[in-house]
Design a protein around this nucleic acid. Structure first.
Lengths: 237, 237
DNA sequence: GTTTTCATGTAACCCGTTACATGATTCA
DNA sequence: TGAATCATGTAACGGGTTACATGAAAAC
């Protein structure tokens, strides 16, 4: 399955690079901010964190709020563990960021890569976007061919399903085209590896993403936090 | 994971209902005509066929072309096994066709259901389409909420990813709307279970699917069969 | 004071793939 | 005659989830 857990490692390192966090929060971020991923369970996350620590990429720190630091040091109370990226971890993540294997164009892998584009060099972004695009174009080619071969044998519904599927892919290709275009056009903000600094990403640093007319994607619920307890977020019964 | 193998069973029964087939071909159909599915391997397919046989839903028949029927009967040569749906199998499939649990709205499950809409009663089709739609609307609601909560903390790329994701879902909702509409409008072709006959599906029996302006989805390669051996279709090294 | 939510972990289990083994048929 | 494709199987392995166990902090 092309190492789905590799995606986890990557995303964890990426998130921790922005700020230290404990496992629980990490998982939440993984499923919301980066909502791309089919949720990972704790049974996957914690062991993964363990191995990252073993690799020297993370360190565990007792993560209690400053106020009760002394209280924490007293009893052997179950610590809230905060994971922090080490120098080697950062280095390793940087390597991962610039490594663009064919994996990087696969669905979930690509989404993960894209989610950290803010910390990725421009040329790498280009490679990933273009790789993804040609991956999709291959896929389209196959779909077209198979459709041409079987068209008359298929009933209307199957045909419609196929059509919709292909259109979805075509749509993503167009999206990629826009992105690639705007990467090309963008003043070449930053190609040096290190200046892609830590907390810099809330600013409009990423120059020229295509502007989109808002669709209905902004209306929705007012920002109340009374969202009902999300069952899919709650692994306990 | 919500019983992915259940999808396999369903699809196998559905395909065999149209015509008897052997495993190898079955798998090909599963990955092309019904190209929706992430490919199943033989390691999954054959055991699955076994259990379906054990359940009395299929029977294995020696499947050699008429000419060498006698040759086949002589030696214990490895038979090409053709699977045929039994009466009970057909009945069971009919049950599956009309059972609409929440599973039916999940991605792959839904695709499988849709692929056999040609053999599904209209009311059931409606239930499935509407179920799927509200499933997606829930998903949208969640995405909107989470986005509203985290918007300002996210960089442009993450935001763009989220936006594109939401738009994809919105697009599928619109697609479903069209389909539901045209189901409603359609002269109620056939609500009786049994008249949904065997080989009837190549005709324009399914009344009123929305017509689509061709997109680029028709150009493509001319219908030559010299398509290169598809690696993803070839489990052997 | 008790229920929820936060928080961390682990072991058993399920499902599906990979890799391998085997052999027939077709094509060059 | 040898390579490629068709065809059927299985055993081992791996990855990820479910379910469980535990406990602190916060909310009610």
């Amino acid at each position: 399955m092309s190492r789905r857990s590799g995606i986890l490692e990557f995303a964890v390192l990426g998130l921790l690079r922005e700020a230290p966090m404990h496992g629980y929060e990490l998982r939440k971020r993984l499923n919301t901010s980066l909502g791309i991923f089919r949720a990972f369970s704790y049974g996957t996350l914690y062991p993964c964190l363990k191995t990252l620590v073993a690799n020297g990429w993370l360190i565990e720190e007792p993560g209690n709020a400053p106020e009760d630091a002394l209280a924490a040091s007293l009893a052997g109370r179950r610590a809230k563990i905060v994971y922090r990226l080490t120098a080697e971890g950062k280095e390793h993540f940087e390597e991962l960021l610039s490594a663009t294997g064919p994996d990087s164009w696969e669905d979930e892998h690509f989404a993960a890569r894209f989610a950290f584009f803010g910390q990725t060099e421009r040329e790498v972004r280009m490679r990933v976007l273009e790789g993804r695009r040609s991956r999709l174009e291959e896929r389209l080619e196959k779909m077209r061919a198979s459709l041409a071969r079987t068209r008359e044998r298929l009933d209307d519904y199957t045909l419609e399903l196929q059509r919709h599927g292909m259109e979805s892919v075509e749509r993503e290709v167009r999206w990629l085209n826009e992105l690639i275009e705007s990467e090309r056009a963008g003043r070449d903000q930053r190609s040096s590896p290190e200046s892609t600094a830590q907390q810099d990403n809330t600013s409009g640093a990423t120059g020229g993403l295509p502007r989109h007319r808002g669709s209905e994607s902004s209306g929705g619920t007012p920002p109340d936090d009374s969202s009902p307890p999300d069952p899919s977020d709650d692994p306990a019964k």
